[in-house]
Design a protein around this nucleic acid. Structure first.
Lengths: 194, 194
DNA sequence: AATCGATTGTACTATTGAGTCCATTCCGGA
DNA sequence: TCCGGAATGGACTCAATAGTACAATCGATT
């Protein structure tokens, strides 16, 4: 029901849509743009995404969400020393700096979240996994005595996630990574003081 | 060139557009929806917003931006004691909780910022004023000895703004204000420790 | 009252873009 | 080789909506 060739075409469509959206914004990208860029036609697009545009956008959102976590590895998974935390911090800043003032995922969310529970699920799952990994990092630092054991790791990881999201949001709006850097440093300072 | 009656009509249009967008999302609101709700016609709309949809959206964004700061008063302007900071914190949480999972301003920004410098300016000006008021609050707390003088007020206010923005973003995505609260508490803790 | 610009209502146009249809081609297995 | 489902391409439909045209009305000023 889905040959190797078909899977490849489907992937080309998602890639093309993701690229178009990153470059020009979700609101202005049409299905024809996606077809042109992927070298396919409406036939294929609706063959692989029977629900049409919405279904394609969810697939793109999922792909972008996966990339977010991938781009933070291996640092995010190994937060066992202050130097590892700093490397992770730099990786996050660098990743979003490169992305510039476009936030494909953010734009997708504000556009489709309200209508499609599937898209909401993508967002929540991303946040959940991301925060969980930060939380594990904090617990490891507590285990080896670098952070006071009394600190609420869950609350602290919530704050770290919020700091990143906000820093990124401001980066999108202003083009400057200064807030993101200040916010992360502020969090690391407070963790180190604990 | 703009009578009292005309100004009132123009305002009705902006109000109607803002309400529709808050309730249903910017992507799905049409100019006819706005006309119907404001009791006007296309004629008026294009009379008062000759550039059409874009110009109207910028006006709505400006209005929403103004509300953001208004809703934090009088607390934001009087951050001279820890109890004032806590009241402000509660006002921010309450304000965004009420707004729920809709972020009219955020949605407007992701939809129109790329194309219209005017919209970018609205965002930046809001952030600038907001952060400046927080910074003043920190400086006041330093002046009366509640915060260590060595703290970099500009960096700290950047972090506070990012914490709020991120907390709000996560509130939009998940419906829970937990991250916003944790992030603000985390910031206040760190300020108090300084 | 006469005038003139501001204001208002509505019918109309032009475009765009999502989604459909269907004929054709490809390709792996019997 | 033949078959059937998967894959492909593109022309076509149809609805929605931004924006225009224009005639009618208001209301302040003289």
């Amino acid at each position: 029901m889905l040959t190797k060739k078909g899977a490849a075409t489907r992937q080309r469509i998602v890639d093309a849509a993701a690229a178009e959206i990153r470059e020009r914004g979700v609101a202005v990208v049409t299905l024809e743009d996606v077809c042109r860029r992927s070298g396919t036609g409406k036939g294929q697009l609706f063959h692989y995404f029977p629900e049409g545009r919405e279904e394609l956008l969810v697939a793109v959102a999922q792909r972008e969400a996966d990339r977010v976590l991938e781009d933070q590895q291996p640092y995010l998974g190994e937060l066992t020393s202050w130097s590892a935390w700093r490397q992770w911090r730099d990786a996050v800043v660098e990743r979003y700096r490169r992305q510039g003032t476009n936030c494909p995922l953010g734009a997708l969310i504000t556009e489709i979240d309200r209508h499609t529970p599937a898209a909401q699920a993508v967002t929540r799952e991303l946040l959940r996994q991301w925060q969980r990994q930060v939380e594990v990092g904090i617990e490891q630092m507590q285990a080896n005595g670098h952070i006071r054991a009394g600190l609420d790791a869950k609350a602290a990881s919530s704050a770290v996630l919020a700091a990143i999201q906000g820093g990124v949001a401001i980066l999108m709006a202003t083009g400057s990574s200064q807030h993101l850097e200040s916010a992360l440093d502020f969090c690391l300072d407070h963790l180190a003081a604990a």
